[in-house]
Write a protein that binds this DNA or RNA. Sequence first.
DNA 1: CAATCCGTTGGTAGCGCTGTCAATATTTGT
DNA 2: ACAAATATTGACAGCGCTACCAACGGATTG
Lengths: 343, 343
Amino acid sequence: MARKPTKSGRIRLTEVAKLAGVSPITASRFFRNPEALSASKRQRVESAVKELDYVPNLAARALASHRTEVIGVLIPSLTNNVFSDVLRGIYDGSEGSRYSIQFANTRYSILQEEKLLRLFQAQKPAGLIVTGINQTPESRRIMESMKCPTVQIMEIGPDPVDMMVGFSHYEAAFAAISHLIAQGFQRIGILGARMDPRVQRRLDGYRDAMKAASLFDPRLIVTTPTPTSMTLGGALFADLLSQVPDLDAVFCVNDDLALGVLFECQRRQITVPDAMAIVGFNDMEFMASAVPPLSSVRTNRYEMGRNAITMVTTALEGHRPAEPVVDLGFELMIRQSSTARSA
Amino acid sequence: MARKPTKSGRIRLTEVAKLAGVSPITASRFFRNPEALSASKRQRVESAVKELDYVPNLAARALASHRTEVIGVLIPSLTNNVFSDVLRGIYDGSEGSRYSIQFANTRYSILQEEKLLRLFQAQKPAGLIVTGINQTPESRRIMESMKCPTVQIMEIGPDPVDMMVGFSHYEAAFAAISHLIAQGFQRIGILGARMDPRVQRRLDGYRDAMKAASLFDPRLIVTTPTPTSMTLGGALFADLLSQVPDLDAVFCVNDDLALGVLFECQRRQITVPDAMAIVGFNDMEFMASAVPPLSSVRTNRYEMGRNAITMVTTALEGHRPAEPVVDLGFELMIRQSSTARSA
DNA sequence: CAATCCGTTGGTAGCGCTGTCAATATTTGT
DNA sequence: ACAAATATTGACAGCGCTACCAACGGATTG
């Protein structure tokens, strides 16, 4: 009578323990630290769990342990395909682990990010994955105070909050432009949309590469804060072309824009690459199957997500990586759209 | 001494209550049912919450109330852009509400779906959004036993578990084919990838429309269980063309395939639409900016997500919709790629 | 004027689990 | 063989919140 046997019909840890003939706390340990149990008890608890089809109550667990098994993920956008690849990596990597993912959308606002971080903080997540390295000082303070494994993803930089996985957008853009220059293109424009911090760094890479070759001209830069789209790519290209009629190549800060440019070229009977070279960024699947195949900078988005979640979970198991910053690099995918003009 | 004042440093509801000069339970009611409080107490609690910057402990709340404020979302894939649009609608629609989204990925497997449903069940979500109408009997049983607002999305059909938002894939495909037939095309092929239940229904629509016009020929059907991609579109199109050399139109069960077909046509110097009409499905943004602009069937994916979450949250507030099944319809976007041949 | 009602408030008793630490088995070293 | 160290195990007390029910005061009623 002191303890109602199965009051709500729901199976509790107590029932499992009773069936296994152990104390509840031992049954509890079965989940948290199975190695600490003797083989025989472990067996008994395991089969009791299976027999009763026991599922732990996460709320009770969280309340008692002051922790959750939730990994918070802050990503700026769901619209952008780049992030769905990253998310996919994160979800795939979390499968099979005890952790679940709590995703939230910052909408490219670092203030929104701060707000969400505060919300997460209150719920004591087991780990955290955040996008980029441009957090507000307050956000940084919150993250540091949470003392949970934290990974900044998408780019790398100095002074990580904890860990990082990404690559240098600056260098990737620099490499793309250097390639175009090496192929003999001179009037190389750049098209940019959304202009988040990572896109800005690509722009920096472009600028420095152009300056290094004494090819820089501010009129070659066309950007907009508008979110990216193929249609926008065509429109920006039209703008650029009217400003710079002798344009011979375009670097697009993402592939959507690049494909939009290709179609705009088709519309205007501009041959690619002879009259206009095109290079995109990210190397989405469609780039290789366009006509002509479009050059791009391959970024390892899926791997980034996967790495990030793995770094969090292994850190949670006490194995911190030797090197907290992982550079996943990039690869120049040179295709027909940016090969040297026949001349 | 009976109660440690602020043991962990964390602000609890008790502290708020003390500052407001009310009992903890009254403070608790402030969050759950503010109208039940007198205006003066409500004021006092409100400012205490603000002053202490109180954030409720969701785990404690869930444990005590046997409910959570989490809405579970089951979606088959993150890779497919269609679902990122839906998810975006869901997240946008949940913003500002008290509910948070717990997303999980079924990977197009109804067994995996069942497993995830069982997991959700144990955590007592406030609501549920699931994809499609092809659940296992056991999944259905679980959903019915959960007694929380549930919305099936993406398609509509008879006998909803609870509510539904979607459209008829069968009719959408039927309409697309009827359009092609009306434009004078006769040898109309269909390209299908992934072949999930909704794609199957599009295939059914195709088949019936073709049969109704006495144009059906099984060789016109090329499908694969492989996930969709642009490259795949090109490859499937090549297969189809080798089987049916006199092909004059292709209906693609999604836009990726359609764009792949367009590029394959460019590669083979097949003029679109004169030598080959193309119609896609979903009307992704890029369809309109291709050259020539590609026809497609517009589906309201974002709205579907938004509607679904709204239906759940309003049901949670006790306002069940008069009609549990919402048909969001579709719209034939007829563009140059499927206009009647000049002849 | 007592009986009744309703709107508002508070007390009590857990929700199901785990942290802490003590207690008990088991092994090891000398 | 016995102390010391180490592996296993269990008792107890709560985590922070809310369900349930009782109590209160004032308004309404016959």
